[in-house]
Write a protein that binds this DNA or RNA. Structure first.
Lengths: 332, 332
DNA sequence: CTGAAAGCGCTTACAG
DNA sequence: CTGAAAGCGCTTACAG
């Protein structure tokens, strides 16, 4: 079964393929209603589906965007991806999914791939410094927007971020307000800017009240295992604390497991606060008290911004900051 | 900045573009080592990235596959998608992500889109009967494989499924073995084959021991809310039961919340069993006892199968069945 | 060992 | 109001 093309339609409708093309592309002010209808009728009869690859080659627009993220299995990223895909779909774009596991090498390969696919733009959640990846994107002048993860020296690029510092400040203040003094903090991986920002929020606030101690700070990965590991370390080293602030929700889940298993009652014995407000923070009981990022909104906004960059819109705000807010639930 | 093309390389290397193309495509048995090296050198200097859109148009192979699923935010699907993307990447394919929210309309639109993008194949997790969607795929002779969700009358197509019936039987037998008799069952949406299969596993096993009662059966969506709703209904109608078997893990989480809030201790007062074994079934404490589907393996297999279909491999097993198995953890 | 030419299915000035 | 022609960047017989 041969694919039906614009040529078939032109032949059967008795017009040229230029005319057919124009009708499909709504550049048909000059085409008679009669011709137009005939073309649509024939297209319908033949179940014509345009070949957008050919179209892309001719126009060098693919109406595809790439989304590069560490791991779609991580709820934070799947929620962002969902938002991006929804918005992309509305705007007439489709989405190529790339998981990098924070591997710089994989990032670079995917970027080359996306460029060769002629994507119109890239939404990039970087796994690290990612210098070379960014250079590749820039050298090929592909529009891109950074989401969630800041990149040093790229502050002036298009990006959608969260005010990490402020979020943690709010959380720590809340705990302090509840009379907690011995508040531990579990940092994320040092190489990520967001880890530093969240930690700074903690450090500054605790210091302000003269409560900051280096021994209260632990570090781990943004994973369930990471949260468990850090919490075991905590239990080995300390036995007197009020609260633990984890740098993201998934870590907090791991922490809660270890605490519960060791007989701690949450929030009675120890308060727990996370960061992100992923959907599953409501899955557990008690539900997780956390600093909420407007994840869906951020993803949606990132996609919108990217499309604006693609269309070379004038006067667009380059960097968008979202303010997270404390969601008080059961764990603190 | 103009994109560098095969023509530029040919010109600079002093050969024809046919030669350049052949070198890049490893159809270069007849090309002198010298020419080959010159071409690679020039390509490197110019940072040449091939235009795969042009390539696709010429070869009518895109090395893209589409993956259609209800919602990437659902952990079961994000894990499947991750497996598919990993495997696709290994095999040289990339993945276009499509969320349908189980809307038949969205499915159809995405399928048209994917066809117009000339995808080489589609992995399809259907949202319902999806007759028209499937017809569209078949009419355009796009290779496809069904995953997870059976489709009536499409049993003879390529597919990767789980033995839902057997899985539930194992779970129910386990509960019975533990001395539970009043085992409730929460079905998934009736329109899905998998809901029926899971329910049949329950009904048959309970009936075998003369324990089946219609009143023990409830129905809801495969969501957290669905699990909560069904469990509230249960608590309104019954006050004497041993165990609840939920048709998937996410429902079970919702159920556990409602049970806990109403003072039930799990597993002491009531045992809970789920189905899927998504990663987050280990996030809660106690961890969820569940029927484990080999999700990653199934996704990987689906992708492999699809690529085999694309390559028109001989003698491939059309339908792959995986046997789930009981994972005993804290809730039962 | 390599090149000229046609073709993939579209779009887009240009001409009439 | 519509068509002929060139072009997008590749691949692939075919010829020599």
């Amino acid at each position: 079964m041969k694919k039906v093309t614009i040529n078939d339609i032109a032949r059967i409708a008795g017009v040229s393929k230029a005319t057919v093309s124009m009708v499909f592309n709504k550049k048909d002010e000059n085409i008679s209603q009669e011709t137009r209808e005939k073309i649509f009728k024939v297209a319908k009869e033949l179940n014509y589906i345009p070949n957008s690859v050919a179209r892309s080659l001719a126009t060098s627009k693919s109406y595809s965007i790439g989304i590069i993220l560490p791991d779609i299995t991580n709820p934070f990223f799947s929620e962002i991806a969902r938002a991006i895909e929804d918005e992309a779909n509305i705007l007439g774009y489709n989405v190529i999914l790339c998981n990098t596991d924070n591997k710089i090498k994989k990032e670079e390969e995917y970027i080359k791939l996306l460029i060769s696919k002629l994507v119109d733009g890239i939404i990039f959640i970087a796994g690290g410094a990612s210098k070379k990846s960014l250079k590749l994107i820039k050298d090929n002048s592909v529009p891109f927007v950074l989401v969630d993860r800041y990149i040093e020296d790229y502050e002036d690029n298009y990006g959608v971020f969260c005010k990490n510092y402020e979020g943690v400040v709010e959380g720590v203040e809340y705990l302090l307000g509840k009379g907690k003094k011995k508040i531990l903090f579990v940092k994320g991986p040092t190489e990520l800017e967001i880890s530093k920002q969240r930690f700074e929020g903690y450090k500054t606030t605790m210091s302000k009240y003269g409560l900051y101690i280096d021994d209260y700070v632990f570090e781990s990965d943004f994973t369930l295992e990471g949260g468990k590991r850090a919490t075991e370390e905590i239990l080995n080293k300390l036995n007197d604390f009020d609260a633990i602030f984890y740098s993201n929700d998934v870590m907090a889940f791991g922490g809660i497991k270890v605490l519960t298993r060791n007989g701690y009652k949450i929030p009675d014995d120890v308060s727990v606060v996370g960061f992100d407000n992923i959907q599953i923070s409501e899955f557990i009981e008690p539900e997780l008290t956390t600093i909420s990022q407007p994840i869906y909104e951020m993803g949606k906004d990132a996609c919108n911004l990217l499309v604006k960059v693609i269309n070379e819109d004038e006067n667009i705000e380059k960097v968008h900051y979202y303010t997270p807010k404390l969601i008080i639930r059961g764990t603190a």
